[in-house]
């Protein structure tokens, strides 16, 4: 029969090869095919291992005299062989203990190293996660605050008791446009700056007119859109003047840019 990988596997030739049941020529042929095929070689090695394990599982201790006879026949003489055996047994048992101890130590070291590396990685990851969490919490709190602010603002603006007064600029600042929300019940004033042209070295300041007297409501921070101003009781009108940077105690009426009656 012509040998090939397929019939070697299917026809049980690998087993016959293992058993030594093939003719010399067939054995050589199978050997060459097995050598050239990694899969067959692997299967043959597995077969060898299984058979060896099977034999060791079914081992029977032979009578001691067989070894003695054999050693006599091959010319070693039992005594020297036995002596050497005893000596070797001692050293080899030390060696064996040493090997076992070394193996355990290596295993322990390796596992410790792996654990330590894992711990480090975990710690780094944990720190990174905590940082991320902090950033997220921070953003969340900002968003929440913003949302609350917006909510309060909406509530304030939509409150039926809140009055809206649009203040338009005069000739001095024709582009100026400021919307004031005044709530007498809550005694609060909110200003929405639509437009206030920036003037170097000067500030816009808001005043309340009470019986002809101008009372300071605060400096309008031109960089902000929404501003809370001081609420002044019994104000008849709201006025905006251009003042020195930081605001003045008394308004420069010649620089009045707009006024709205309440």
């Amino acid at each position: 029969m012509k040998m090939n990988k397929e019939n070697i596997l299917k026809e049980g030739i690998l087993e016959s090869y293992f058993l030594g049941d093939l003719s010399r020529e067939q054995e050589q042929e199978v050997f060459e095919i097995v050598q050239s095929d990694a899969e067959l070689k692997r299967q043959f090695n597995e077969l060898e291992q299984s058979m060896e394990k099977l034999a060791f599982e079914n081992a029977v201790t032979p009578p001691a005299h067989i070894k003695e006879d054999l050693l006599k026949i091959i010319g070693g003489g039992t005594q020297t062989a036995e002596q050497s055996k005893v000596r070797e047994l001692n050293t080899s048992s030390y060696k064996r203990y040493f090997r076992v101890a070394a193996s355990v130590a290596i295993l322990f070291m390796t596992s410790s190293l792996v654990l330590w590396m894992n711990l480090n990685t975990t710690n780094q990851e944990l720190t990174a996660r905590l940082n991320e969490q902090e950033v997220l919490l921070d953003s969340l709190s900002k968003v929440t605050k913003g949302a609350l602010k917006n909510e309060e603002l909406m509530a304030f603006v939509n409150n039926p008791e809140t009055e809206r007064h649009l203040l338009k600029g005069n000739k001095i600042a024709p582009e100026a446009s400021v919307l004031s929300y005044v709530n007498h019940a809550e005694k609060s004033v909110l200003v929405h700056v639509h437009k206030l042209p920036k003037i170097d070295g000067k500030d816009y300041q808001m005043w309340a007119d009470v019986d002809g007297e101008m009372i300071d409501m605060g400096v309008l921070d031109a960089s902000k859109e929404l501003l809370t101003m001081n609420y002044i009781e019994n104000a008849e009108s709201i006025n905006i003047t251009i003042e020195e940077e930081g605001g003045s105690d008394h308004p420069d009426v010649s620089n009045l840019i707009g006024s709205v009656t309440l």
Binding site: F56, N58, A59, V60, G75, A81
Partner: peptide
Amino acid sequence: DQEAFAKLYDAYSGAIYGVIIQ
């Protein structure tokens, strides 16, 4: 090497004797 032979005998004689006896 007779010493090596003796060691190999110790290692394998039980397993192979089990097969032979069967």
